[in-house]
């Protein structure tokens, strides 16, 4: 709990991205970074489907646009015929003809 409290200080002092202990360890032992931590993992194969793991929830779902809240900010996906193919608590699959994947949108 202490460490969690410290984190805001760190952010203030350095520009470096915040890493949890798990992520630091993962970096040290050269393990894949998505094994630890809760940063979003975005997988896009072709442009018909985007899979986002470790998301918090959807913020907006409009015709041709979906905004997804994650620990690293909001990811906005735009395109034509955007649908949510599948949504569970771990992953969301966005389908449709995707034209943009925007972070900080």
């Amino acid at each position: 709990m202490k460490r969690v409290k410290k984190e805001p200080d760190k952010r203030g002092k350095s520009d470096r991205s915040i890493l949890s202990i798990g992520e630091k360890l993962a970096k040290l032992f050269e393990l894949p970074p998505d094994l630890f931590g809760n940063r979003p993992k975005v997988t896009a194969v072709g442009r018909g489907e985007v899979l986002i793991e470790n998301f918090k929830g959807i913020m907006d779902f409009e015709e041709g646009m979906v905004r997804i809240n994650t620990n690293n900010g909001v990811i906005k996906i735009t395109g034509s015929g955007i649908t949510i193919r599948e949504i569970t608590s771990e992953a969301i699959i966005i389908g449709g003809k995707i034209s943009n994947i925007d972070y900080d949108a």
């Binding site: 929830g57 959807i58 779902f61 409009e62 015709e63 955007i82 649908t83 949510i84 193919r85 599948e86 949504i87 569970t88 608590s89």
Partner: peptide
């Protein structure tokens, strides 16, 4: 949708 997701209700093919 978010509440459903949190309650482990599987939704699919969601379209506006």
């Amino acid at each position: 949708i978010n509440i459903c997701t949190r309650r482990q209700i599987l939704l699919w093919d969601i379209a506006r």
